[in-house]
Design a protein around this nucleic acid. Structure first.
Lengths: 256, 256
DNA sequence: CGGATTTGTATATTCATCTATACAAACAGG
DNA sequence: CCTGTTTGTATAGATGAATATACAAATCCG
């Protein structure tokens, strides 16, 4: 979300909006639905600034607190976000991130009309833990290459991930990731571009301090933790991944 | 409406119906919408008896008065009707009565799946008032035949009307109406079956005592008063009509 | 830094919604 | 006619919605 466009205050909402009383539908809900329609129909685009609370209250002919109740509803559903002193802005919709056999970050983000980018934030060779060794079909303690990356859409961090590879097989993968900014591209260079998702496990938890810093999150926000194994066409494991997706910015989609 | 089918108490409404709280939509409105859907979708047919108020309250998990508020909404909109001691019944929908060049009572009622009938309730030759003379293009005081009819759908009175014709031109029209029960049929016999609507004026008022009696209405109900001129194909006036339609049972439809 | 602006929080009041209890009125059936 | 059933009306209280007033906190700009 790019909230710097403060001059975009010309609201598409019409000057006076009537809300019906006595119909059994609360005023706040009617207002929330009106504003949501503007967003859904594209008349209020992501990053656009809404009129002030006082303006909206006057426009709908209600008390400011009634109006705030409507905004609270939209905030709760992550359609808008407000900052004291600055205003209320339309949020970017979460990225729909399909989990299937061929899960590719760059393609997914591009398909949502967003610019994907990635960045190596660390790498090292280390002995495989029992869990990683088992996932990759290696002996415990075998050398594995750990690659830490952060991935962004339109410059906004979306996910932080640690990947582990058999060290002998993926010797300079980290250098390729650093050079290209893309894990898929790096794997293609090593002849492993046709990898596919073998298994995915999803949990969620509050983001820890490190993830908050990397993902530019206020403390306490939720991340979805996605542990996955990717393998080659013969289904031999080549990558174990431990990723944290920002729950505000990503929506995982599983089709069955 | 035929409310005598008391054995039709097997309600299509499911045994338990959840209504959502805290959504900004009142409970009573959700319940009213649920019941209306049953009616609109044909699962509750005209004349059917709804479960008792206590049953419905228990079914929706609300207090009886909340349930009554929902029923009040449906009653107000004339979808249902309740009688103490008997129960609450689905009403017949009003007859949609198009007002256009070729307005024929019998055809309209038949098209709504109802059985039309008519009855002569009086007739006489009288001097034309200034208004009637003007409408029929006659000299004031000229002899006109006044014919009073009542019209029913499925035996329920729908409209009471007084018609005035030039006496010389429609000498035995009243006898024909009495014999056939249909004004259109009588006019056809006189070679005037191709009449068409030249002008229609619509007002509304509370029904007077006479109209309440003829239309089988409780006192105070509203009638729509439709004053109309019908003419022959050359647009010469042949009939002036002063009709009172029961507003509960008829819905006038004008297409522009 | 100070002032203006905007959102966030608090307190108080009124009205609508929802619930509970009780009894009256009308209808149907034995 | 009496009893049972069902809707209609009344009273009371709790909670949510809506309104009003006031002030705090955060941001932006000159």
């Amino acid at each position: 979300m790019d909230p710097t466009n403060d001059s975009a205050v010309t609201s598409p909402l019409s000057p006076a909006e009537d809300v019906a009383r006595g119909t059994g539908v609360s005023l706040w809900k009617q207002i929330a639905e009106r504003i949501e329609a503007e967003i859904v129909e594209g008349r209020l685009t992501p990053g656009a600034r809404l009129p002030t609370e006082n303006e909206l209250a006057e426009r709908f002919g209600v008390n400011r607190h009634t109006l705030r109740r409507a905004l609270a509803s939209l905030t709760e559903r992550r359609l808008i976000e407000a900052t004291p002193g600055r205003g209320t802005f339309v949020k970017e919709p979460p990225i729909r991130y399909p989990i299937n056999a061929r899960t590719r970050f760059s393609e997914i983000v591009s398909r949502e009309g967003r610019a994907p980018s990635g960045r190596l934030i660390g790498s090292r060779v280390e002995p495989a833990s029992a869990e990683i060794a088992q996932a990759l079909g290696l002996a415990p303690g075998a050398e594995v290459l750990r690659v830490d990356v952060i991935r962004e859409a339109d410059g906004v961090p979306i996910t932080v991930a640690s990947h582990w590879y058999e060290a002998d097989r993926c010797r300079d993968l980290d250098l390729l990731v650093a050079a290209t900014g893309s894990v898929t591209r790096a794997l293609e260079t090593l002849g492993l571009g046709d990898y596919r998702r073998l298994e995915t496990r999803i949990t969620a938890r509050p983001a820890d301090e490190e993830d908050c810093r990397l993902l530019a999150l206020p403390s306490g926000r939720t991340v979805m933790v996605v542990d996955a194994i990717n393998g080659d066409p013969q289904r031999r494991p080549i990558q174990y991944s431990h990723a944290r997706f920002c729950a505000d910015r990503v929506q995982l989609v599983v089709k069955t």
